[in-house]
Amino acid sequence: MKLHQLSTLAAIADTGSLRAAARSLDVSPAAVTKAVRELEADLHAPLVIRNTNGITFTEYGRALVVHARLVLGQLARAEAELDAMRGAAAGKLSIGVTPWVALTFLPATVLRFRERMPEVQLEFFEGLLAVVQPRLRDGTLDFSIGRPPPASPQSEFHHEPLFSTHSAVIARRGHPLANCRSLLELEDAEWVLNWDPASRESMADNLFLRRGMRVPRTIHLAHSFAILTGLITHTDMLSICPWPLVELSMAKENLCALPLRETVDETTVSVTARRSSPPGPAGRCFLDCLHEVIDEGARSRDPDMRRLFHSIELLL
Rank of each mutant, 00 (worst) to 15 (best):
F309G: 02
A130T: 11
S94D: 04
P99G: 07
P242V: 08
L111T: 15
L122I: 15
L308D: 03
R114L: 11
L245I: 07
T263W: 05
D288N: 06
R135L: 09
D26F: 07
L209I: 14
R172I: 01
R23H: 15
R135E: 08
E160M: 11
W195A: 03
G96R: 11
D83K: 06
V97I: 14
A11C: 08
L129I: 09
V192D: 11
C285S: 08
T8V: 05
A76F: 03
L9E: 10
V169H: 09
V132P: 08
L136S: 07
E126S: 11
D142Q: 00
H4S: 15
S249V: 07
A30P: 05
R301A: 15
L111M: 13
G87M: 03
A108K: 13
A251R: 08
A151D: 15
L75K: 13
F105Y: 02
R77W: 03
A20P: 12
L238I: 13
R23M: 14
V66E: 15
D142H: 01
F286P: 06
L122R: 06
F143P: 06
R86V: 04
R214A: 15
H44G: 12
A68D: 04
L3D: 15
F208T: 04
G73K: 05
A257C: 05
E247S: 09
